[in-house]
Simulated scan of single mutants.
Amino acid sequence: MSKEVSEEGQTHRKDYADPPPAPILDVGELKLWSFYRALIAEFVATLLFLYVSVATVIGHKKNADACEGVGLLGIAWAFGGMIFILVYCTAGISGGHINPAVTFGLFLARKVSLFRAVGYMVAQCLGAICGVGFVKAFMRPYYNSLGGGANTVMPGYNKGTALGAEIIGTFVLVYTVFSATDPKRSARDSHVPVLAPLPIGFAVFMVHLATIPITGTGINPARSFGAAVIYNNEKAWDDQWIFWVGPFVGALAAAAYHQYILRAGAIKALGSFRSNPSN
């Protein structure tokens, strides 16, 4: 067990160990099958996520007039439930990111290398395109006429409001990812194997309830990009920047908050600076 110094200056043993920071450039992992297996897992998981969630959106709109659709609650459950399932399935292989914003936040926190982060984002975007492509292939009579599941700023809201909603929504998601996968929590709750995927899925569910009326809920650049590529609508492309800038800013804020405030990274760095004999 490692040791930890409390704010009172007392030393006590920790029942967990923080993993070492991932190297920014890790050329060695490019030679490992586990790296490419993780890319495949991210691709397939994002494909399945987009297929089920966007198909739910299209199905809801198709039956909305007959009051037979799943409703906004059902859409939120589809997104949150699929994230719960897929994170549970892929966490041991790739970490279960399924979202470039999550990958970006974990990269900033030195949880993954630059090569892995870029590879994941590419795999996620390609998987999203394929997933929405399957929706269009299977639901072609309704896909284009019902919006293609694309994210846009909804009528009555401006782009500033939409950007703020995406930032806060992604903050909630990435903050939950950090909290659910914190080594301290993982060590003490290791007897509950679904603990991490469950709050992450619920975070996605809750954010969708809040932001579907504003942006259709992005909080995942791959989800928004895949739908925009297949739908290929001018409005979807005009608003696309919101669904990249918002999630990345939200992920940055969540990573900084968790690492430097909650895990006291800033205080530890300052303490190390003060204790350096050369200063």
Rank of each mutant, 00 (worst) to 15 (best):
V192S: 12
G164L: 05
F248N: 03
P213S: 14
Y143D: 01
P155G: 05
H208D: 09
R185N: 13
L198M: 12
F178G: 06
A123V: 10
G148D: 12
T181A: 06
I129N: 08
V174I: 07
E166N: 00
G216D: 09
F205N: 05
F243E: 10
D182T: 00
P197N: 11
N151W: 02
L198H: 13
F205G: 00
A196E: 05
V245Y: 04
A255F: 01
E234G: 02
A203R: 01
I212E: 02
F134Q: 01
G250M: 06
C125F: 14
F205P: 05
G226D: 10
R223A: 01
G169S: 08
G127A: 03
N232S: 14
I167E: 07
M121T: 15
T170A: 01
G164V: 00
N220H: 01
V135P: 05
F178A: 04
V132H: 09
E234S: 15
V174F: 00
A253R: 10
P193D: 13
A180S: 13
I168K: 04
M154G: 04
Y142F: 14
P183I: 07
N151D: 09
H208E: 07
A123C: 06
E234Y: 12
A253G: 12
A162F: 10
Y143H: 11
V153H: 09
T152K: 02
P193W: 13
L195S: 15
R185W: 12
H191L: 13
A255Y: 06
V207Q: 08
A251T: 03
Y157V: 09
D182Q: 00
C125S: 14
A222Y: 03
A128R: 07
Y142W: 14
A227T: 02
N232L: 10
P247Q: 07
R140G: 12
V204R: 09
P183L: 09
G216L: 05
G149T: 11
A227N: 08
S190I: 08
V132N: 10
G218D: 06
G148H: 12
V192I: 14
F171T: 01
V153S: 04
T161W: 09
F171D: 03
M206Q: 14
S145H: 11
I242Y: 00
L209K: 02
A228S: 11
Y231C: 08
D189G: 15
A165K: 02
P247G: 10
L126W: 03
V204P: 04
C130L: 14
T181D: 05
A187I: 08
Q240K: 06
V229G: 09
K136M: 07
P141L: 11
A253F: 15
W237I: 05
S224W: 01
F248V: 11
V135T: 12
F248Y: 05
A227P: 10
V177R: 06
C130V: 14
F138L: 14
Y143L: 11
Y157T: 00
W244R: 11
M139N: 03
M206A: 15
P199N: 08
V122P: 02
P197F: 04
G147V: 01
Y175I: 04
A228K: 03
S186L: 13
C125M: 15
E166D: 11
